[in-house]
């Protein structure tokens, strides 16, 4: 299976150095988007090219890699990225969160608490939290430089005025160490509290948009809200239909043509582990 014709972890060394320098600057300025010279990867944009490049720059031969897509280890995106690094870096892979040293994720944070020995790599589609409010990169750069985030609060306020609550349920904006407003990638807002004060290193890669950013461990990450409308990390008001967990993030699954549905853990490893323990 090993593709010896490729360099370790696919990317050439100069590309990895460029990404590594960007990662170190990202860690030094938590939440700030570092531009980087994103490469074409052997997969289309939108399939995690940013995350794959960050993972490739971080992997060591001793790592155990886990890849999840919306919490699941067995979906196309997760399976193909896992096998990509099996072939090009010869690293071990795992589906168990606790056993992994590097976890690449698309839009979830694992339920199992992360440790100091782990790195979480996020795939990011649109790294700029202000992009849908201000299309110009020139302008959003200025807004970050001036810490001019009033527009974001106006957007959240308009949500409240229109819907009665803040209707943003994923990619919910956060402020890192009271400085940069950051897009946490499209994780459900249920996961937002886990961004803050995590023992693990959190790295974010946006391939098409050519941005890298980072949250060091033990860093304060606050979801934006208002005093009278505090942040609410809501989830479906059900237990998991498979494992009975009441604290995990749930996916709604349609099970027949009569509108029947069930709610199950989005984190497949978490759910399977619980069922294994219960059996």
């Amino acid at each position: 299976m090993t593709e010896t014709a490729y360099n370790f972890a696919y990317l050439d060394e100069q590309t990895k150095r460029m990404i590594r320098r960007a990662l170190l600057k990202g860690l030094a300025i938590p939440g700030y988007q570092v531009p980087f010279a994103s490469r074409e990867m052997p997969m289309p944009y939108g399939w995690g090219t940013g995350g794959v490049q960050v993972t490739a720059a971080c992997l060591t031969p001793e790592d155990r890699l886990k890849v999840i897509d919306q919490g699941a280890d067995d979906t196309t995106n997760a399976v193909s990225i896992r096998s990509f690094f099996q072939r090009t870096a010869e690293v071990e892979t795992t589906e168990a969160t606790a056993d992994a040293t590097v976890i690449q994720t698309r839009h979830r944070i694992p339920e199992h608490p992360l440790t100091e020995d782990q790195i979480l790599v996020y795939q990011v589609p649109i790294p700029e939290p202000l992009r849908f409010l201000e299309p110009s990169e020139v302008e959003t750069r200025k807004m970050h430089a001036l810490e001019d985030y009033g527009l974001m609060h106006v957007k959240l306020y308009e949500d409240i005025a229109r819907h009665g609550t803040i209707a943003t349920s994923y990619a919910y904006p956060v402020k890192v160490e009271d400085r940069y407003v950051m897009d946490p990638s499209p994780i459900p807002k249920f996961d937002n509290p886990k961004l803050s004060d995590s023992p693990a290193i959190q790295l974010f890669g946006a391939g098409r948009e050519q941005r890298i950013y980072a949250i060091p461990p033990y860093t304060q990450v606050v979801s934006l809200d208002f005093e009278d409308h505090p942040f609410d990390p809501s989830k479906a008001d059900h237990p998991c239909a498979l494992c009975g967990a009441t604290t995990s993030y749930l996916d709604e699954v349609i099970v027949d043509d009569e509108g029947g549905r069930m709610f199950v853990c989005s984190d497949t490893d978490f759910c399977a582990t619980r069922r294994g323990e219960a059996a």
Binding site: F8, R20, L24, C58, L59, I201, P216, P217
Partner: peptide, 19 residues
């Protein structure tokens, strides 16, 4: 062995800068 040695050294630097 640049790819592997650099990868291991970078992991140390990544941890150092993160902590």
């Amino acid at each position: 062995d640049p790819p592997r040695q650099a990868a291991r050294a970078f992991r140390v630097l990544l941890n150092a800068m993160a902590r």
